[in-house]
Structures are given as structure tokens and as C-alpha cells.
């Protein structure tokens, strides 16, 4: 099963929509900046997220982009201040 690696960036003048977008995206990936998320998803999960984004975003007022990173670009990503995306299927202990 190939995974998709994506970066999602958005902006909206509407406070409520901004909060709802953040809440939605927290369910799929990790927050990098106020309006930037990173996610590693299966195709089905991406289809699911895409449907929700389409329903939520206002095409007149908002901007949103999803950048798909090829595997070699993921490997070359240079980071400061945070670690790479956690593998979601790894077990957690709290």
C-alpha cells in the first residue's frame, strides 16, 4: 500500500472556518505552523479528507493548497525545531 505524503496550507478571513479547518486537519496530520499541516495518508484517507475539505472551504474567499511530496523529497526534507512526521501506525504508550 503506497502512502501519500502531503503538505496542506490554507488561509481564510473567517475565524470560524479557520478553526474548523484546523480541527479537521488535526484528525489527519500534524500541525507545523498556524495554517500548515503535514500528513501521511492512504489513498482512501486522502479521498475522505478531500471530500471534507471541499465541503468546508469557501471557494470565493479562501485559499487552500495540498502539495504532494514524492518519496525522495520527503527523505531530503530539512527541518529545524521539529521532528519528521511520526508513523501513525506505531504504537503509543501514555
Amino acid at each position: 500500500m503506497r502512502e501519500l505524503y502531503l503538505v496542506i496550507a490554507y488561509d481564510t478571513p473567517d475565524d470560524r472556518r479557520r478553526a474548523r479547518l484546523a480541527k479537521l486537519l488535526k484528525g489527519f496530520g500534524e500541525r507545523r505552523q498556524y495554517s500548515v499541516f503535514e500528513a501521511r495518508l492512504t489513498r482512501e484517507q486522502w479521498a475522505h479528507l478531500k471530500g471534507k475539505l471541499e465541503a468546508l472551504v469557501n471557494k470565493e474567499e479562501d485559499v487552500l493548497a495540498v502539495y504532494f511530496l514524492p518519496p525522495e523529497a520527503v527523505g531530503r526534507t530539512w527541518r529545524i525545531g521539529h521532528e519528521g512526521l511520526k508513523r501513525l501506525e506505531d504504537p503509543d504508550f501514555v
Binding site: E89, D92, V94
Partner: peptide
């Protein structure tokens, strides 16, 4: 179902 891992969360707290 099929490949991929299983996300297990263990709560010890």
C-alpha cells in the same frame, strides 16, 4: 484489512 500496521494506543496512566 490487508497490509499496513495497526495503530495501538496503550494507556498506562
Amino acid at each position: 484489512e490487508g497490509g499496513g500496521g495497526v495503530g495501538v494506543v496503550y494507556v498506562l496512566e
